[in-house]
Design a protein around this nucleic acid. Structure first.
Length: 828
RNA sequence: GCCUGGAUGGUGGAACUGGUAGACACCUGGGACUUAAAAUCCCAUGGGCCUUGCGCCCGUGCGAGUUCGAUUCUCGCUCCAGGCACCA
């Protein structure tokens, strides 16, 4: 066979090395205080059935980092597991008349085999699935402990209900008014449910965003916005004709003298009472009912017109004594602040629109610089800063000072105080579905709600269940499950049948990986103290708020329960872009899905890994290209052919490329060391695409220098050095392939255990450079000169240049700028 | 509306702290090898101009500015993607 047709046998090679790595257990790690640790984690997969290209990309990026860090001498923990609870399993079970556990574990088996075929360097001994009672028992323990600390509570409230999933969702799980999973419109519903008190940690979650310097700004911004802190004041407005007061929250106490009415949420408990006193029940309750219905049907896209109804009641502005009519208004939210606001139409756009609609007076109290606002002629509110007017003692102050002064004044008078609110709500974790971790609580008719005794955990999810078409959780009707005894009085009691949001499992799995097999403790102190925090975390940006916020919250509560000593779980975060095809996200309905199995069969795992790293930088979307994959495969074959053609020389050659090299030898030697430098730097900044192109350049230089035939034109030591550099530098991306070549050229020990190459400063140095000559900033000529050539000589050479001469011929030379080793610019 | 990013050849993408725009690859065209094809290798490949040169002009979304010099910095726009959105 002609050597041009020579191709590497990726099937055999990949199988061989996967087996060898497994036998030698080289990716299994233990706590070792003598070695620096590196904890690399990718977001674990949901076992949906098959690996998709997004996984391939995510895990390829992670594996490159893991393998590189290992070669750099770190004790690298790189675990994998399964986010195994969730609705698709249950839906599939209903459809196929099967069981979610069976569906889940079958999927895990298959996907595991797919991951193994990709050659990822996982410590498989740490594999775990969150649906395993040995996993969720600890979660139930945390739940009980948090309950005892008051960080878990139950309340009846308006929740987000997804009809198609048959369950409640947390606020974070509602995207544009629709379910994050199935995209159906959610509807508000009154329900009882369990909540984690994440709002207790709002301030810390916000503050520590500043410490997350290894996170993308985009994600931090999203988290900060989600938490939504606002600083302001709470003010009590007495209600006319009674002892009651109406409490409002405002961020603009400086505008309080401009309040001309009050607006309160339709659901506000005082609405109907006020209407009752004034005899306006009919109008008001009609309005409340109408708004409620409108909200249920409301399409999240369009904002309904501002509407309200006068309740008949008046509130008294404690600063002015003014009587302000109280309106129930459709744009006031019960869930935020106190559910009631003072309305200052001159300085709030919503209040302005409302006031114009209902002919309520507008009173200017803030004058912006260089303008004269006139309440009658205003067409929109002035929300910016300015100087106070019509505000009694506070006139003349700027709005910033006035906020403080007015709050203090109210504080002294006993009717106002500083207050900070957050947009973040408590995390509702009750799910009305079966396939999740049971909430370890018991409802006793005598003693009320009681936690399950810690020694009785886990509360196992029963397996002897049958599913209804409706999707209603079988736990509700399973007597053997819900019928229990009260842990306090021993009487007959009812077990909680809701399960936990599956985001709870993924909120702490990174910690459990440190000691996955421990049956006595949730988190082994020695292990978590050594391994945590995760040094590099990688996953899709779609979890910027959801999972990443919950995981941060769990780090803090586990710290406060005494399990962890870290504040933040992930030191560095990489959010990789999507894999797209033909400009859109891959999806079955669009028919543009690329199946990793097919690709691995056709080209081998190394090629697939290589292409997915080469085609785009990690954080950007990656446009899949079948032709591009072929290009990556060709590249590997070129290396293979080169090594095979020069095998004898490579095997025989001993000793280092060094000493006085000249000509092509010197050039290739230099290129090799420059490539090591470039690739090493690119690895530190996670620019794998440019690292690969640098290796391609080195390969191009090598084949050009070696010449067409194998009768090499270059020193064998220099050639071998270049070949070894290529193999080592490429090995994190194409590990099986490189291991094989490493062995072929005579190495006895595994490449995976070798040391990352170090570049030689001296070898990488250029002795000649191309100096650019510009005239007025335009490129006119190039000169090849010795590195560090004297400036005067360079100027003379530049001026003597023929082409340059054409442009400076009859002009005065004003200035000559010399940038060392780069360029000369002649200004005429 | 607000907050993030982004816009570079036919395509994916390079360009370190302002200093040769288009690295590396894909596509395409041409050539070598071959009876032929595949594979492989070589050459060309941003647009335009002519006087065909080691040439000139234009060119990094648009318009200004700073600078000897701007893909890079500043200001003002346009478009695209993502996030938030009656949050008082």
């Amino acid at each position: 066979m002609s050597s041009h047709n020579l191709k590497y046998d990726f099937n055999a090679i990949e199988k061989k090395w996967q087996q060898r790595w497994q036998d030698d257990k080289i990716f299994q790690v233990e706590v070792d205080r003598k070695q620096p640790k590196f904890y690399l984690l990718e977001m674990f997969p949901y076992p949906s059935g098959r690996i998709h290209m997004g996984h391939v990309r995510n895990y390829s990026i992670g594996d490159v980092i893991a393998r590189h860090k290992r070669m750099k001498g770190f004790n690298v923990m790189h675990p994998i597991g399964w986010d195994a609870f969730g609705l698709p399993a249950e839906n599939a079970a209903i459809k196929n008349n099967s069981h979610p556990a069976r569906w889940t574990y079958e999927n895990i088996d298959y996907m595991k085999s797919q991951l193994r075929k990709m050659g990822f360097s996982y410590d498989w001994k740490r594999e775990m699935a969150t649906c395993d009672p040995e996993y969720y028992r600890w979660e139930q323990l945390f739940f009980v402990q948090l309950y005892k600390k008051g960080l878990v509570y139950q309340k009846v409230t308006t929740v987000n209900w997804c009809e198609s999933c048959g369950t409640v969702l947390a606020n974070e799980q509602v995207i544009d008014g629709c379910c994050w999973r199935c995209d159906q419109q959610i509807i508000p519903r009154e329900m009882n449910g369990w909540f984690f008190k994440i709002t207790d940690y709002a301030e810390e979650l916000l503050n520590q965003c500043d410490s997350l310097v290894g996170w993308p700004d985009k994600v931090l911004t999203m988290q900060r916005n989600w938490i939504g802190k606002s600083v302001g004041a709470e003010v009590d407005f007495p209600i006319k004709g009674g002892d009651e007061t109406l409490k409002i929250f405002t961020t603009r106490p400086d505008t309080i003298f401009g309040a001309t009415f009050m607006s309160i949420a339709p659901e506000h408990p005082q609405v109907l009472k006020l209407a009752g006193v004034s005899g306006r029940e009919k109008e008001v309750s009609e309005f409340v009912e109408r708004t409620r219905l409108a909200r249920q049907q409301q399409n999240s896209e369009d904002e309904p017109e501002k509407e309200g109804v006068f309740t008949g009641g008046y509130a008294i502005n404690p600063y002015t004594g003014d009587e302000l009519p109280i309106y129930a208004a459709n744009f006031v939210l019960m869930e935020y602040g106190t559910g009631a606001v003072m309305a200052v139409p001159a300085h709030d756009q919503r209040d302005f629109e409302f006031a114009r609609k209902y002919n309520i007076p507008v009173k200017v109290v803030i004058q912006p610089k260089g303008e004269e606002l006139d309440s009658a002629g205003m067409t929109e509110a002035h929300e910016g800063p300015g100087i106070l007017v019509n505000s009694a003692d506070f006139n003349g102050m700027n709005s910033q000072e006035a906020k403080k002064a007015i709050t203090e004044h109210g504080n002294a008078g006993g009717f106002a105080q500083s207050r900070t609110t957050y947009r973040l709500r408590d995390w509702g974790i009750s799910r009305q579905r079966y396939w999740g971790a049971p909430i370890p609580m018991i409802h006793c008719p005598e003693c009320g709600v009681q936690p399950v005794n810690e020694e009785d955990l886990p509360v196992r999810l029963p397996t002897d269940v049958s599913f209804a078409e409706s999707g209603k959780s079988p736990l509700c009707d399973l007597e053997s499950f819900y019928k229990t005894t009260c842990p306090k009085c021993g009487g007959e009691a009812h077990r909680e049948t809701d399960t936990m949001d599956t985001f709870v499992e993924s909120s702490w799995y990174y910690a459990r990986y440190c000691c996955p097999g421990d049956t006595r403790e949730a988190l082994q102190k020695e292990a978590v103290d050594y391994w945590l925090p995760v040094d590099q975390y990688i996953g899709g940006v779609e979890h910027a708020i959801l999972h990443l916020l919950y995981a941060r919250f769990f780090a803090k509560i586990l710290r406060d329960l005494g399990y962890l000593t870290i504040d933040e779980p992930f030191t560095n975060l990489l959010t990789q872009g999507m894999v797209i095809k033909d400009g859109t996200k891959m999806s079955k309905s669009k028919g543009n899905v690329v199946d990793p199995d097919d690709l691995v069969r056709q080209y081998g795992a190394d090629t697939v890994r290589l292409f997915s790293l080469f085609a785009a930088p990690p954080e950007r979307d990656l446009e899949w290209s079948d032709k591009g994959v072929e290009g990556a495969h060709r590249f590997l074959n070129r290396i293979y052919r080169f090594v095979m053609e020069n095998r004898e020389i490579l095997l025989e050659t001993r000793g280092k490329a060094a000493g006085s090299l000249a000509g092509a030898d010197r050039d290739l030697h230099r290129k090799t060391h420059q490539s090591i430098r470039k690739v090493s730097r690119d690895f530190e900044s996670l620019h794998f695409n440019t690292a690969i192109s640098a290796i391609m350049e080195l390969m191009n230089s090598l084949s050009a220098a070696a010449g067409e035939s194998s009768k090499t034109n270059i020193a064998s030591t220099v050639m071998k050095e270049a070949v070894e550099a290529i193999i080592q530098l490429l090995s994190p991306m194409a590990p099986h392939f490189c291991e094989e070549l490493w062995e072929i050229i005579g190495h006895k020990s595994q490449l995976s255990r070798s040391q990352w190459p170090v570049f030689d400063q001296e070898a990488a140095r250029e002795d000649e450079i191309t100096l650019v000559v510009q005239v007025n900033g335009k490129l006119r000529s190039r000169m090849t000169v010795a590195l560090g050539e004297n400036e005067e000589t360079l100027k003379k050479m530049a001026l003597a240049d023929q082409n340059v001469g054409k442009f400076i011929a009859d002009k005065d030379i004003r200035k000559i700028i010399v940038v060392k080793n780069k360029l000369i610019n002649i200004v005429v």
